[in-house]
Simulated scan of single mutants.
Amino acid sequence: MLILTRKQGEAFLLGEDIEISIAEINGDRVRIAINAPKDVKILRKELKDAGELNKESAISVSSEETLFNITNLTEKFKEKNKKTT
């Protein structure tokens, strides 16, 4: 991990075409300006983490629902077979 110290108005580059500059410092908050090509995806980490957590939850719920549905179908199939025999 690289840690940089920058003052308001200073910037640094990531590669050749991404510039990150310190736009404003106000107390414990820092406003960062990012100049990058349109094809570069920029996403706050907490949003990415929340999205991954939601995806994991959806997969888990989906798996539980699938298991529940399979169990119900199996029971219904057994009941139907008992009635026909």
Results as ranks from 00 to 15, higher is better:
residue 47 L to P: 00
residue 51 G to Q: 12
residue 7 K to G: 09
residue 3 I to L: 09
residue 79 E to D: 07
residue 7 K to A: 14
residue 10 E to F: 02
residue 82 K to G: 03
residue 39 D to E: 05
residue 45 K to I: 15
residue 34 I to C: 05
residue 30 V to L: 09
residue 85 T to W: 11
residue 5 T to E: 06
residue 84 T to V: 09
residue 85 T to K: 13
residue 62 S to C: 02
residue 80 K to Q: 12
residue 59 I to P: 00
residue 66 T to K: 03
residue 37 P to A: 04
residue 41 K to L: 14
residue 85 T to A: 09
residue 11 A to H: 06
residue 5 T to L: 13
residue 7 K to H: 14
residue 34 I to Y: 07
residue 66 T to W: 01
residue 62 S to G: 11
residue 50 A to Q: 13
residue 47 L to A: 08
residue 43 L to G: 02
residue 48 K to H: 15
residue 39 D to P: 00
residue 55 K to N: 07
residue 11 A to S: 10
residue 26 N to W: 05
residue 42 I to V: 09
residue 15 G to T: 08
residue 85 T to G: 06
residue 36 A to G: 11
residue 46 E to P: 00
residue 81 N to D: 06
residue 74 T to L: 07
residue 67 L to R: 01
residue 22 I to P: 00
residue 81 N to Y: 11
residue 55 K to I: 15
residue 34 I to E: 00
residue 29 R to W: 02
residue 5 T to N: 10
residue 3 I to Q: 07
residue 21 S to K: 11
residue 3 I to V: 13
residue 29 R to A: 02
residue 28 D to H: 05
residue 48 K to S: 14
residue 76 K to H: 03
residue 33 A to C: 07
residue 57 S to R: 15
residue 49 D to E: 12
residue 24 E to K: 15
residue 21 S to F: 10
residue 59 I to C: 01
residue 28 D to Y: 05
residue 2 L to A: 09
residue 29 R to H: 03
residue 24 E to N: 15
residue 26 N to H: 07
residue 31 R to I: 11
residue 65 E to I: 02
residue 73 L to T: 03
residue 15 G to R: 14
residue 50 A to V: 10
residue 74 T to C: 04
residue 24 E to R: 15
